[in-house]
């Protein structure tokens, strides 16, 4: 990446489908490694729920999905035009 501003029309590194896929797979692999590592150390759970296998993975995933969908639902309720307050 250079300091020069890229030319128009030339897609950046992150805009190529191939690269994005690369990132995505790296991420998945990293996730898999993390999940595997769970079984390699001694657990000191404070709460019972932590004893559920892959609790953090599931919780993180579901929490995220829940937040996004809840947000979508919320939009129906509270979203207004951009100039909502500027109108008189």
């Amino acid at each position: 990446m250079s300091d020069k501003t890229p030319k128009d029309g030339e897609p950046g590194w992150f805009e190529r489908k191939r690269n994005i896929d690369k990132v995505w797979y790296v991420l998945l692999v990293f996730g898999a490694i993390l999940t595997a590592s769970e079984f390699l150390y001694e657990h000191h759970p404070h709460f019972a729920i932590e004893e559920i296998p892959v609790f953090y993975e599931i919780f993180g995933f579901l929490a995220f999905v829940f937040i996004v969908f809840a947000g979508k639902a919320l939009r129906k309720l509270i979203m207004r035009d951009e100039d909502y307050y500027d109108r008189d």
Binding site: F30, L34, T35, Y56, E57, G60, F61, F64
Partner: peptide, 13 residues
């Protein structure tokens, strides 16, 4: 590990 798991799977989501 646990925090990384949590955050990583958020990103995966």
């Amino acid at each position: 590990v646990t925090k990384t798991q949590l955050l990583t799977f958020s990103i995966i989501a």
